[in-house]
Amino acid sequence: MSTPENQVPELPSSTKLIMTLATVAMISGLLVVMVYEFTKPIIAENQRLATERAIFKVLPLAKKRLTYVVDQDKLVLADDKTVGELIYAGYDKHNNLVGVAINAAAQGYQDIVKILYGYNQDNSCIIGFDVLKSTETPGFGTKITTDEGFLANFKCLDAQLNMPQSALANAITTVRHGTKKHAWQIDAISGSTITSNAVGRMLNKSAQKLLPVVVKNLDLLKQGQQ
């Protein structure tokens, strides 16, 4: 490095070292806080837009939405920043409930795949999903958003509840390509079985747990903003 070997620099007093570090840390802290304060509202707005884009994609009829957080078996009106399991209720122009969007996640081929799926309470169907986060192999795992045969599963994926309304009547499962028999089965994409399976698993897990709560609180959701 730059220090010549023959001349060992004298150790400065520790006060000087601490002072230097403290000064640099203060400058750095000041900069970070300034930029943080400046970008905070913009980032929040971006996040809101991203969430809404995903919600309106899985609930094509929705024009407005409300956020609820799951509290035991009740739903409480909340905002996007609330910690907990969030569900989004979508409404059309006349404030009629058109569906509910719910988050789900499961381990895919490389990392956790996160999706948002739409549930239609009128025919008890899962009517679509949007991938929020995925690092799946391009050309294979990413086919879940482009493969027409796979997307056809979500025209109306049966998610009816059982009699006591405690869980799904039929568990959602992913089956081998070309062997789908029932409305609650997902026909896997041949060649990207692992990601297809992940979608099935995450939908089943989330629907088993959250749809009973949604159905129980349907009246609340239907009231909406009024």
Binding site: L21, I27, L31, V32, V35, T39, I42, I43, N46, Q47
Partner: peptide, 19 residues
């Protein structure tokens, strides 16, 4: 410390520009 500061700034700025 100096480098980390600017990386943090970039991190926020990119989030603000495009998520």
């Amino acid at each position: 410390i100096i480098i980390a500061t600017f990386v943090t700034l970039v991190d926020y700025i990119i989030q603000a520009v495009s998520l």
